[in-house]
C-alpha cells in the first residue's frame, strides 16, 4: 500500500477485512450514496451469524455494479442487466450458498427488468439490494425507468414525461417475499433490513434510495450529496406495511420508506424437489 509506505496510515478501518483495500479509493463521487449502501451491507454482514465463505455477491454493470469488485467475498461482476440470471445459476448449482445481488436501478429493473420479474415469480432464494439513484449515472446521466416525472436528465432536457417504475409494487406483483425500502440516510434501519432480507428464504428485495451527487442532483440543481441527504431527512416518512401502490416516488416529493412485504411462499428449489419427487412417484 502506497499510503502505508508514507507512514500516514497506521490503523486499519474495522471494515477492511471485508473490503478489497488494494482497489481503494473507489470510483464513486463525493456525496454519492452507494458508499453508504456498502458500509451498511458490510456492517450487516458482521452481524450475520453465517459463514461468509458461503456467500456470493453478484453485480451487474453501472456505478453500483462496481460493488462486487470492492467486497472481499466470492464476487462476480457480470454483464449488463444479467446479475440475476448469473445469481440464479450460482444458486441452482450450489444451493448451500447465500447469493446477494447488489446492483443499480438501471441494471436490475430496466435492462434486467425481465429477469427481476421472473426471479421474483419463481421465488428463487436470493437477496437483491437495489440502489436507486433515479438515473443512469455511469454513462452520463440518461433518463432511466425510475427517473421521476418532470426531472431533468441529459436525455430529457425539457423534463421527463414518462411514468417511473414503482419498484416495490413491481416486486410485490411478481411475487417477492420480502420488500423494504430505505434511503441512504436510514443506515441503521437499512442494516437491519439487509440482515432480515438475507435471513429470509426466498426472493427478497431491499431498495435503497441514494443521492447521485454528480448527475441527478447537478442537472436538477438540487445541490450536493449532503443537500439530498437533508432532503431525505425532511421528506421521508416511515410507514411499515404501506400498500405498495402508494410507493411511487415523485420528483422532490415525500418518500415513503419501511418494510412493506414479509410473507411466505414456496421457493423454487423446494417446489422443484417436491415436484420431481411426485413426478417420479
Amino acid at each position: 500500500m502506497a499510503m502505508a509506505e508514507k507512514g500516514k496510515v497506521e490503523e486499519k478501518h474495522p471494515m477492511e477485512q471485508l473490503l478489497r483495500m488494494d482497489r481503494m479509493p473507489h470510483i464513486w463521487c463525493p456525496g454519492c450514496g452507494i458508499g453508504i449502501s456498502v458500509t451498511a451491507f458490510v456492517s450487516a454482514l458482521k452481524k450475520l451469524e453465517f459463514d461468509l465463505n458461503k456467500m456470493c455477491v453478484v453485480s451487474g454493470i453501472g456505478c453500483t455494479g462496481r460493488v462486487a469488485g470492492y467486497i472481499k467475498l466470492d464476487s462476480f461482476h457480470t454483464t449488463h442487466g444479467r446479475a440475476i440470471p448469473f445469481a440464479t445459476g450460482i444458486k441452482m448449482a450450489n444451493p448451500d450458498l447465500k447469493v446477494v445481488v447488489f446492483s443499480g436501478d438501471g441494471d436490475l429493473v430496466s435492462i434486467g427488468g425481465n429477469h427481476f420479474i421472473h426471479a421474483a415469480r419463481r421465488n428463487i432464494d436470493i437477496t437483491v439490494i437495489l440502489v436507486n439513484n433515479f438515473i443512469y449515472a455511469m454513462t452520463g446521466g440518461q433518463v432511466a425507468p425510475t427517473t421521476p416525472e418532470t426531472a431533468y436528465t441529459t436525455t430529457s432536457p425539457f423534463g421527463n414525461f414518462e411514468t417511473p417504475a414503482n419498484i416495490p409494487q413491481l416486486a410485490e406483483a411478481a411475487g417477492a417475499v420480502y420488500v423494504a425500502r430505505w434511503t441512504a440516510l436510514h443506515v441503521r434501519r437499512l442494516e437491519k433490513s439487509i440482515v432480515e432480507a438475507i435471513n429470509k428464504p426466498g426472493f427478497s428485495l431491499v431498495e435503497i434510495v441514494a443521492p447521485c451527487s454528480m448527475y441527478y442532483s447537478r442537472i436538477n440543481r438540487l445541490g450536493a450529496g449532503i443537500d439530498m441527504m437533508r432532503f431525505y431527512h425532511e421528506n421521508s416518512i416511515i410507514k411499515h406495511d404501506e400498500p405498495t401502490e402508494n410507493l411511487a416516488v415523485g420528483y422532490q416529493k415525500q418518500i415513503i420508506v419501511g418494510k412493506f412485504i414479509d410473507r411466505e411462499r414456496p421457493g423454487f428449489i423446494e417446489s422443484n424437489r417436491r415436484w420431481s419427487a411426485e413426478a417420479k412417484g
Partner: peptide, 13 residues
C-alpha cells in the same frame, strides 16, 4: 459508530 457507517469512503471510525 454512526460516523463509521455513514462514511462512504471508509475513512472514519
Amino acid at each position: 459508530g454512526l460516523c463509521e457507517i455513514v462514511c462512504p469512503e471508509f475513512a472514519i471510525w
